[in-house]
Write a protein that binds this DNA or RNA. Structure first.
Length: 397
RNA sequence: GUGGUCGUAGCUCAACGGUGGAGCACUAGGUUGUGGUCCUAGGGGUUGUGGGUUCGAUCCCCAUCGACCACC
């Protein structure tokens, strides 16, 4: 159940409450990603202190190892992982894209390209762990996610590459629509056998690559399904920020008002602000924890790297305005040292900080929407926050 | 003491007598529904030292310093 609390005038931003079997979620919300049943480097009680209300798990990874039946036997994902709050599982559809269907793009760059066969029934692929053959379909993805037991589950989709021509984009979109219907039917059948207090919410995923008419058509199709939310897939996969914001602008009038809007895979602080402004309620992203493991952290002034030599002797916290555990207890000289030495704690402490930064940002966003001051807040934030331009500054003469 | 091997970037090592390179480390970037992976760029050298041969020496010769190995 989704209830809208407040709307910001002059913007599509709104606050709301999403009710799930494991508790309620305030939106706009950022959902930390815990692919293998753990948010890398951060304990559940730390996530609670940071302010996380819901985290993700991944169907693809948990299906391959340890297998959903083990997790079901152990009492479900929440009990097994000691995260007794709301969870969401991704469907595994993204791997159709990330494991080889996209010729120009793979986020798993160190994995050799291996065959992926897409048919109307589903996707045959090879495990990135051992090369073994597997098959996923809408029906199988629904059953796996039911066994895992998350509160919100995602439809099985095909995330076509951003470089797809329109003909292929339509083909992939039509297939994703057909799969969404199959997911819905399989889902309803499975949910009838689940207790009333454990009913899962299924969100379909709209696609359409970079083609405005396809994007609109897909969002309309997914909105009209009798499902409790909608997701936008296929963005933040390598296209420009302008392209992504444009697509969100195009979609905004077509978002179903009474359902939560989930933008998958986003994102950066600036992307979250821009997307909330365009009516998005839910986000997930690997960036805060991945950047942390690679030494990058956010502050209200932008992003920085802990290894920068200027921090070698610094007695400042990562961000002087931050109230997270890391910033309350550690100075940068120490964090830099333990990161340089490859210590696990460095990745953990930076992950805590980055997650806190995004969750604090979304908390502020909610407060400002409720107060009617979101637009001013967004402009102030972005004025102080330096966005990387992607260039290598060192190569300038 | 005798014989031998070897001294090249911070480290481990390349380079036919013809403008000294690589990996790691270091410096600076990148990573959007998670592989701590990976990618890009940059700064770094009197080739242990001193002579000699040569148009030209990291390379050949001599001396010297140092390290290591074998033998006495």
């Amino acid at each position: 159940m989704f209830q809208i609390l407040n709307k910001q005038k002059g913007s599509a931003a709104r606050t709301g409450i999403l009710t799930t079997p494991h508790g309620t979620i305030q939106t706009p919300v950022f959902m930390p990603v815990g692919t293998n049943g753990t948010v890398k480097g951060v304990k559940p009680e730390e996530l609670v202190e940071i302010g996380a209300e819901i985290i993700l798990g991944n169907t693809y990874h948990l299906h391959l190892r340890p297998g959903e039946l083990l997790i079901k036997e152990k009492g479900g994902l929440q009990k097994w992982t000691n995260w007794r709050r709301p969870m969401l599982t991704d469907s595994g559809g993204f791997q159709v894209f990330s494991l080889g269907a996209g010729k120009d793009y793979t986020p798993l760059s160190n994995i050799p390209k291996i065959g992926v066969k897409i048919s109307e029934d589903g996707v045959e692929f090879r495990s990135h762990l051992d090369g073994s053959k597997h098959f996923l379909s809408p029906e199988i993805a629904m059953q796996i996610q039911a066994d895992l037991g998350a509160d919100v589950i995602m439809a099985f989709d095909e995330c076509a590459p951003g470089t797809s021509d329109k003909s292929y984009a339509r083909q992939a979109m039509d297939r994703t629509h057909a799969w969404a219907l199959k997911c819905k039917i399989a889902h309803e059948k499975i949910q009838k056998e689940r207790p009333a207090e454990a009913q899962q919410m299924l969100f379909p995923i709209a696609q359409g690559v970079v083609y405005d008419d396809l994007r609109i058509e897909s969002m309309k199709f997914m909105s009209e399904l009798d499902l409790p939310g909608v997701a936008i897939g296929g963005l933040s996969v390598g296209e420009s920020k302008e392209q992504m914001y444009h697509t969100l602008d195009v979609l905004q009038p077509h978002l179903p008002e009474h359902k939560p809007h989930y933008l998958m895979g986003v994102g950066t602080p600036e992307d979250i602000l821009e997307a909330v402004d365009r009516g998005i309620d839910m986000f997930d992203c690997v960036l805060p924890t991945r950047l942390a493991r690679h030494g990058t952290f956010w502050t209200h002034e932008g992003r920085f790297h802990i290894k920068q030599s200027g921090f070698k002797n610094s007695s400042e916290p990562l961000d002087t305005t931050c109230t997270c555990y890391t910033c309350r207890n550690y100075e940068m000289s120490y964090l830099r040292h333990i990161f340089t030495e490859g210590e696990i704690l460095a990745m953990s402490l930076l992950s805590i900080h980055n997650l806190h930064f995004l969750l604090d940002l979304t908390a502020k966003i909610r407060a400002h929407i409720n107060a009617g001051t979101f637009t001013t807040f967004k402009n102030d934030f972005l004025r102080n926050f330096t966005i990387p331009d992607g260039k290598n500054h060192n190569s300038d003469p």
